[in-house]
């Protein structure tokens, strides 16, 4: 077990900042909420419905971005985003929406470049583009500011603020403080008291 006794709720316009040391379970909690991990115990509700174990139903309401960017190096940014958009919605992404969003992160001139020529900061911005392309209420962000310069951090914070103002919700795990008003949750206080070693040999 990674943590126990943890309880929180996130409503429209709420920003929740997950803090904690390395290994305290920030990423685990995000993956749990995203439906990628099953919980050993506890409940997870969205509105009135219990959603634990119903990943496919829930995934239409949230966007998750993890440590790895999930982009294919041989495909261009345009192709990567189109295939992601189609994967998540079944719809075709029009070029104008893509270009407007790419401009938002200063990637417009790279839109037809294969990802393998991107620097790590550019790749990270490309991974963050999904939050602008998909229109979903819950954003789950794992270390969204890593590798961003101050200009792009400001851009990201502006996009996050706009999302919150529009009634969206953000749960972000990050070591750096992000300049947004919201609550923060320190996972170090919820460390599991028992370590169930026998389950993992």
């Amino acid at each position: 077990m990674v943590f126990e006794g943890l309880h929180f709720a996130v409503g429209p316009g709420d920003y929740l900042h997950l803090k904690g040391k390395n290994g305290s379970g920030k990423s685990t909690l995000l993956r749990l909420v995203a439906g990628l991990l099953p919980a050993y115990s506890g409940t997870l509700t969205w509105g009135d419905s219990d959603i634990a174990g119903a990943a496919a139903a829930r995934s239409e309401d949230m966007i998750y971005s993890g440590h790895q960017h999930g982009l294919k190096p041989v495909l261009t940014l345009r192709e990567n985003m189109k295939s992601l958009y189609q994967l998540m919605t079944g719809l075709h992404l029009d070029d104008e929406t893509l270009e407007v969003s790419a401009e938002g992160f200063g990637l417009l001139r790279l839109v037809d470049q294969p990802l393998k020529y991107f620097s790590s900061g550019q790749t990270h911005r490309a991974a963050l583009l999904r939050f602008l392309l998909l229109d979903r209420p819950i954003w789950l962000m794992d270390e969204p500011t890593v590798g961003l310069d101050s200009e792009n951090r400001a851009r990201l914070e502006a996009f996050m603020q706009a999302h919150l103002d529009g009634g969206g919700m953000i749960i972000a795990a990050s070591h750096d403080p992000i300049g947004l008003l919201g609550r923060s949750l320190d996972l170090d206080g919820f460390k599991a008291s028992k370590v169930h070693l026998e389950q993992w040999l």
């Binding site: 990628l36 496919a56 995934s59 993890g66 790895q68 999930g70 190096p73 998540m88």
Partner: peptide, 15 residues
């Protein structure tokens, strides 16, 4: 799995 796109695939409404 290695580049993380399996997470995205798993979260697709397709299941």
């Amino acid at each position: 799995y290695e580049d993380g796109s399996l997470d995205d695939l798993a979260l697709s409404p397709l299941g």
